[in-house]
Design a protein around this nucleic acid. Sequence first.
DNA 1: GCGACAG
DNA 2: ATCTTGTCGC
Length: 250
Amino acid sequence: MRGPRKTKDRRKLLGRSGLTYAQAVDIQLRLAEQIVTSPPARALSRHHSRSWRGGVPARRDISLVAGADVGYDKARGVAVGGMVLFSWPGLEVVDVAAAVAPLDFPYVPGLLSFREIPALELAYCRLAGRPDVIFCDGQGIAHPRRCGLASHLGVILAVATIGCAKSVLVGEYDEPGPARGEYSPMRHDGHVVGAALRTRDGVKPLYVSPGHMMDVETALELVLAAGSAYRLPEPTRAAHSLVARIKRRL
DNA sequence: GCGACAG
DNA sequence: ATCTTGTCGC
């Protein structure tokens, strides 16, 4: 017997999660119905409450943001979740939190959230403050069932989220222009589910999609305002390095 | 049946 | 994601 055995049995339990593929899919379908597609406190901000401080757009409805990421320790069979809290729009680190959780769910395309959310939820609870928006490493609604990691996390935590993926899961798009800020919509099933955004000149685009309490335009605006030195927004980048740091200490 | 497939 | 140093390019 050789080659990667597929998880074709939708009735077979996935890892030690106690969930079958079919059950996980049902959960996503229910979560997707709870996704709010408009940004938080929209009436208070929007075009008029915007001001500029240090070149970063400020919004009255956002004073704290967070970056989230997860890393794995295959040997120990655990997932390390990390969250970094930032002031907004100043982008100063306010707090960091990490958590280790058992890795009981396998990596299955389309079901990533079940594998990473346990560690993220725990790290979130350990955070000193409550972010108004969380930048996640993965898809939001740019997902087969409109329930990627960012959407799933946003709904269960009741927090606005944005999916910042390094590669595509689903959706078609035209290559955006080469300059930072240029983007092109990603479509799936006849819907715009996100956008391929050039966060740095001449670099591979970042795939941005709304998670929860978010829309594409606001997501793009916030991602661009959350960093310009690297392809990934600062919050997500900080969370990634935090996780890497924690993993070494194990 | 043949590819594609977040992290 | 993870295994891993140096190296080619702007």
